[in-house]
């Protein structure tokens, strides 16, 4: 892999991360982030917000051939900012406005003018909350770790 490719992979990884966090954010977090922006960029829809479903694939025995497990809702949207940046938004929620804001933030994250501001007001708070949620859950789960003792049977 040459350095240009490495850069590209890094860029993709960063974008993957923020798109995933935007998907997991609550609508309230996104709206709050949006309201904090003083000079809001203008944008138009390339794909108006819509809700549909995706089929979740699982594997037989967890590792074997794939099969269709069941569906999940998904909302998505695509926008173009006035300065040309295109953003895509996705969420498993049944919530078009969520997809719209996620798309706008994805576009803004690609724009160096907005990036650091969106990172601090939207992306990182969501990342922190997700991390906190996981660690609280992990602590509770750890308290139920059990070690069963096998009792020797009388006739042995």
């Amino acid at each position: 892999m040459n350095s240009a490719e490495q850069m590209k992979t890094m860029d993709i990884e960063r974008r993957r991360r923020w798109i995933g966090l935007l998907a997991k954010a609550t609508l309230q977090e996104l709206e709050q982030g949006w309201s904090q922006i003083e000079s809001k960029p203008e944008y138009t829809f390339i794909r108006v917000p819509e809700t549909g479903q995706i089929m979740i694939r699982a594997r037989t025995g967890g590792v074997g051939p794939q099969f269709n497990l069941g569906e999940m809702t998904m909302s998505r949207c695509a926008v173009r900012l006035a300065n040309g940046y295109i953003g895509f938004g996705y969420t498993a929620k049944h919530q078009k406005r969520h997809a719209e804001l996620a798309a706008v933030f994805d576009a803004m994250m690609q724009d160096p003018v907005y990036r650091s501001m969106i990172e601090t007001t939207v992306i990182e708070p969501v990342a922190d909350r997700e991390q906190h949620k996981r660690s609280v859950s992990a602590t509770k789960i750890a308290s139920t770790n059990v070690d069963f003792f096998t009792l020797v049977r009388g006739d042995d």
Binding site: G52, Q53, M55, R57, A58
Partner: peptide, 10 residues
């Protein structure tokens, strides 16, 4: 709901 795609296998 329209089918918009399939997931990566979990």
């Amino acid at each position: 709901l329209p089918r918009l795609g399939v997931s990566e296998p979990i």
